[in-house]
Design a protein around this nucleic acid. Structure first.
Lengths: 228, 228
DNA sequence: CCAAAAGTGTTATAACTACACCCATGG
DNA sequence: CCATGGGTGTAGTTATAACACTTTTGG
């Protein structure tokens, strides 16, 4: 049971980049290599609960989105053949930065956990590199027909911030004018009467319209997906 | 490990309907109830291989398409909690009818296996009813951006036959003219110089263009999907 | 006033839909 | 020749993309 935990991190050049936490393995196989955080199913919990639990154990946070990715079980995956259910999750940008700041302040950061930008990943244990590729592919796909991208953002956000999230995920620039019209037409946003001020013309703040179903999981729906 | 095995069956009114094989359980839990065919993973095989094996065991056939559906593992699924990787598969119409005819001729049809139309399913064991709903949802989705529907048809087929498959899957009529243009533009078909004759104007026969990737699994690709 | 981002309008192109129409065959 | 499904043409509508333009703020 592993999880690809994604968030948007602000790089030193000011642009947003996808990042994920990895854990350094302490025992064989693949000792001293980086791997996806994970754990084992206990008898009393469902896989999605176990994913949320291990996510909390490694990051101290609860995800804004959590969905099953795939069940891997090829015999050549690992010396001892293992079937692993992999999940993928999104964390809110502000949750992550707050948590990292708290760790720095308390001096009690979790050992053996490090955040990597997705374009600067180290060599990974098992087939975890391919799994991350698949998770990123799923995210890029899903962002086209679902409002998952809002899982990266705080409660209230501007359209420019949302567009930046889309651009980081998709890896290309989007036209601000057309982007605005598309997300407005999709009905995923509720405009507030508050504005982000500070530079140039103030930008209206929006928040997630939770009335609109994610509507992309089919009959599985909310039971198997965790949203916040 | 279970599999939702789908095929197109010609109903008595001449229209095509989705159908799937179920097996009657002989032991508890859910003894004497219908359930999805399945089995257990052996140590030496991958889940996708196990799915293909159990599929062959229950139907005697090999699928034209086979893909993982979901890994179910909620604690309330079954009295003894089980994690089950579920696959979904397509069988070619002509394979199925030939196999059923062979069984009838030899008098050695597999016991406890029966084909049901998807709109006339009996009460099912476990959460298999919901699993079938999800598989049908996946199929209806996938048919919109992939050429999976061709998995139901024989080597060569007319556009009317392909359109009928789409209509059965989607549950609505499609415009023949627009359908033709769309599938031709998609490049999934290779026209042959043969025609289906017999009534009215002969219809050109097409076959699957295997050069075009299914291109809808992302980085997982062919390793985890079986196509024929 | 100026730079820059927020937000609106306009136009060209492509995709989708409906439906009229012609073509070729069996009876 | 006629009924019927195979196959083509075409016009209206809608989605998408590109980009000019106006608005509103901070400095």
């Amino acid at each position: 049971m592993s999880t690809v935990i994604l968030t948007l991190r602000r790089g030193e050049d000011g642009s947003a980049v996808l990042a994920l936490p990895l854990v350094l393995r302490t025992r064989d196989p693949y000792a001293d290599q980086w791997a996806l955080p994970g754990g084992w199913l206990t008898a009393a919990e469902s896989p999605v609960d176990a994913a949320a639990r291990t996510l909390a154990e490694t990051t101290g946070l609860s995800p804004s989105y959590l969905e099953q990715l795939y069940a891997f079980g090829a015999v050549d995956r690992s010396p001892t053949r293992v079937v692993s259910i992999v999940y993928w999750a999104l964390l809110r940008q502000d949750d992550v930065t707050a948590q990292i700041a708290a760790h720095r302040a308390s001096g009690r950061a979790p050992e053996n956990v490090r955040w990597f930008d997705v374009d600067e990943l180290p060599e990974l244990a098992f087939d975890h590199s391919r799994i991350i590729d698949y998770a990123l592919w799923r995210l890029r796909n899903k962002v086209g027909y679902s409002r998952v991208a809002q899982g990266f953002l705080p409660e209230e956000f501007t359209l420019a911030e949302l567009r930046e999230a889309y651009e980081s995920i998709l890896g290309r620039q989007l036209d601000p004018a057309n982007f605005r019209r598309q997300v407005e037409a999709a009905g995923n946003l509720i405009p507030t009467d508050r504005f982000r001020t500070g530079s140039h013309r103030p930008a209206r703040l929006y928040r997630d319209n939770t009335d609109v179903e994610l509507a992309d999981r089919g009959p599985l729906g909310p039971e198997e997906t965790s949203t916040r």
